[in-house]
């Protein structure tokens, strides 16, 4: 299980990265390598050039600018977990990250790599979709912005241009005074890729009114999706109501099935996990 031969470059700037990408049609970006290396070793991926972006200036930064959190694509998952900016403003991401692989995977694995990898069970893509993240991509000289929910197209399939480089991930900061969130997933073994995962964020204004409810589901579908929950505005929210609303929202969605987990199973489990996530979120804002 050895990779096929390739060349290796280690550029220091985004321009240089894009240059290499433009000049070599069969090149790939190497971030943490935690998804790419197994693919290379099994020869499922055969680039002629690997562009290591670990040393690109600014790629490891986490910054809050106004109402936006900007995250460099090379921010390691283990670093993100410890970031106080993220703890303060993106608690959902912090809740989801411990589910990503094992500690040694997170030491190397990056946020950008996980997003571009687009594993249907990826926790980071799910959070990005749920929170309305925006991906900033450079393709040659063009800067492109793609909304997370438009980015994921299928299992390991994204809207990323073949010569594109993700250079920044922006998350909106909630404008409400209180946010509550919940993240639950289920896998065969604790740290496997999930059969189903659910991410919930609830925003509440200073008067205690719930302004937004976001539910994202992953693992059970071809790619992570936001589920529109409507019909909660008029009534007082409770878990029973939410469970009904979730079941209704999932009614016409096709779930993935395989020998590890059937489609019907994934669907039932998604409903159950979503309820748990909602329960956590509502508890966090003191609603229940």
């Amino acid at each position: 299980m050895k990779p096929a031969p390739f060349n290796y470059e280690r550029p220091k700037t985004l321009d240089a990265v894009c240059d290499f990408l433009a000049k070599n049609s069969n090149s790939l970006i190497l971030a943490g390598g935690q998804s790419l290396l197994p693919m290379l070793s099994m020869r499922l991926s055969r680039p002629s050039l690997l562009i290591d972006v670990a040393h690109v200036k600014g790629f490891e930064e986490i910054k809050k600018i106004g109402n936006t959190i900007n995250i460099g694509p090379m921010v390691r998952q283990s670093v993100a977990l410890e970031s106080s900016v993220l703890k303060n403003h993106l608690p959902l991401l912090i809740k989801a990250l411990p589910f990503v692989g094992h500690p040694p995977i997170r030491v190397r694995g990056t946020l950008g790599g996980s997003l571009v990898q687009a594993d249907p069970s990826g926790e980071i893509p799910l959070v990005a979709v749920t929170l309305g993240a925006v991906f900033h991509i450079r393709d040659g000289n063009d800067n492109i912005e793609i909304l997370a929910r438009d980015f994921f197209l299928g299992p390991m399939l994204t809207a990323m241009p073949s010569s594109g480089c993700l250079y920044k991930i922006s998350f909106p900061v909630s404008k409400y005074s209180k946010i509550g969130c919940g993240f639950h997933e289920i896998a065969s073994r604790k740290s496997d890729y999930a059969f189903a995962s659910t991410a919930v964020q609830i925003e509440q204004n200073e008067n205690g009114k719930i302004e937004t409810i976001s539910l994202g589901i992953g693992g059970a579908l071809d790619y992570p999706q936001v589920i529109n929950i409507s019909g909660y505005n008029e009534k007082k929210i409770n878990l029973k109501l939410l469970k009904e609303l979730i079941s209704e929202a999932l009614l016409n969605i096709d779930f993935v099935g395989d020998f590890h987990a059937s489609a019907s199973y994934r669907k039932r489990v998604t409903i159950k996990l979503a309820s748990r996530s909602f329960s956590d979120a509502l508890k966090e804002i003191g609603y229940i």
């Binding site: 290796y8 190497l30 935690q34 290396l37 197994p38 290591d52 500690p103 040694p104 190397r108």
Partner: peptide, 19 residues
């Protein structure tokens, strides 16, 4: 294949030597 890289445990089969 775990080794310590800058004090942290990583899998050496998922890192290229050049990296």
């Amino acid at each position: 294949c775990t080794v310590l890289m800058n004090g942290e445990a990583v899998r050496s089969c998922l890192v290229l030597a050049v990296q």
